[in-house]
Simulated assay, not measured.
Amino acid sequence: MDSNRSWDTITAALNRVSGPGRRGADWTTYLCPVHESDGRHHHPSLGVVYNRQRGRTVVRCFAGCPDEQVLERLGLRIRDLFDEPRAPAGARRTHSPAVALADQALQRAGLSLEVHKRDLGPRLANPKDVATYLYRWPDGRSAGCVVRVHTEHRNGRAKSFRQYRRTESGWTPGGFAHLPFHLPEVLDAVRSGRDIHICEGEADALTATHAGLTATCNAGGAQGWHPEHATWFTGAHRVWIIADRDAPGYRHAARVAESLFDLVRELRIVQARDGKDLTEHCDAGHHISDLDPVPVLDAHYCLRSHDR
């Protein structure tokens, strides 16, 4: 079992500190050593699952205890979550296979591989907060929020975002835990086997939600997806990734799909029939069912899902 070194290390420590775990369909659950170590009866809320694709063990307290605190109580460190030592910070990274596949999809779709920013000209007004998106822990507690900001320019509108995290003393500027938007609803969909739609941003996720779907995204846009986001989808029946029709959108969709592949049963990657994103697709009069498969990406991940 040397190839699963992190799993052996984590579960051995949990068996020693919290007692034997309870095996489920995907997660093995233990008493959390941070908030369930008082000797009283608790329903175990710490989940552990092995991600074979990434050679790491995922630890998740569904009540919200930070991974670092859990590991500290176990006498472990972040590096113990990985089978092999991670590359040092700042080490040069090669172009990932997922992003290379996304670039093939861009070429097939006739879209540019480059990101071109439009010149909006001089600013006409001060930035204005137009929306606030709340991110929650599984029990509904606030974890953080994203504020959407619009700034009017002569040739159009610029958008930007601010993040805040919830602390004991209130809201503090800065990033928060890597949680999917609408997390309680996502977890309910995982348990009940309903489809889940992953968008690139909160506005599109709300568009899908208003259409009656379970929809989510990550904070931080196309560059904001992390492996920690993927762990919350473990055991999902079917996940639809709705890609924006540009280079960042395709690359984001590919990274999301690659991180989810070993965790969910089926993946589909689709895009707007008209317009750049889901909201423009719906504004053009199309239904959600009219979304088109993303060339290369949808076939690649859908076929891989069915081949397992």
Rank of each mutant, 00 (worst) to 15 (best):
R5E: 08
R5D: 06
R5L: 13
A12L: 10
A13C: 08
A13S: 14
A13K: 07
S18L: 08
G19V: 11
G19Y: 09
G19P: 08
G19F: 09
P33H: 03
H35C: 15
G39R: 11
H41P: 04
H43M: 12
P44Y: 05
Y50C: 06
R54G: 13
G55R: 13
V58Q: 05
Q69G: 00
V70N: 06
G75F: 09
R77P: 00
L81Q: 09
L81M: 14
F82E: 04
E84T: 09
R92H: 05
A100F: 01
Q107N: 09
Q107R: 14
G110T: 08
G110F: 06
H116P: 00
N126G: 14
P127R: 10
S142T: 07
S142L: 14
S142W: 12
V146L: 11
G156W: 07
Y164D: 12
R166I: 04
T167Y: 04
S169N: 12
G170L: 03
G170R: 10
T172Q: 15
P173N: 08
G174I: 05
G175W: 04
G175E: 09
P180I: 05
P180H: 06
L183C: 06
L187K: 10
A189N: 05
V190P: 02
D195E: 14
E202F: 02
E202K: 02
T214H: 05
T214W: 05
A222Y: 08
W232H: 12
A243T: 04
D244K: 08
D246R: 13
R273K: 15
K276C: 10
D277A: 03
L278T: 01
H281F: 01
A284R: 01
G285H: 05
G285T: 06
V294Q: 01
P295F: 05
P295S: 10
V296D: 00
V296S: 00
L297H: 02
R304M: 05
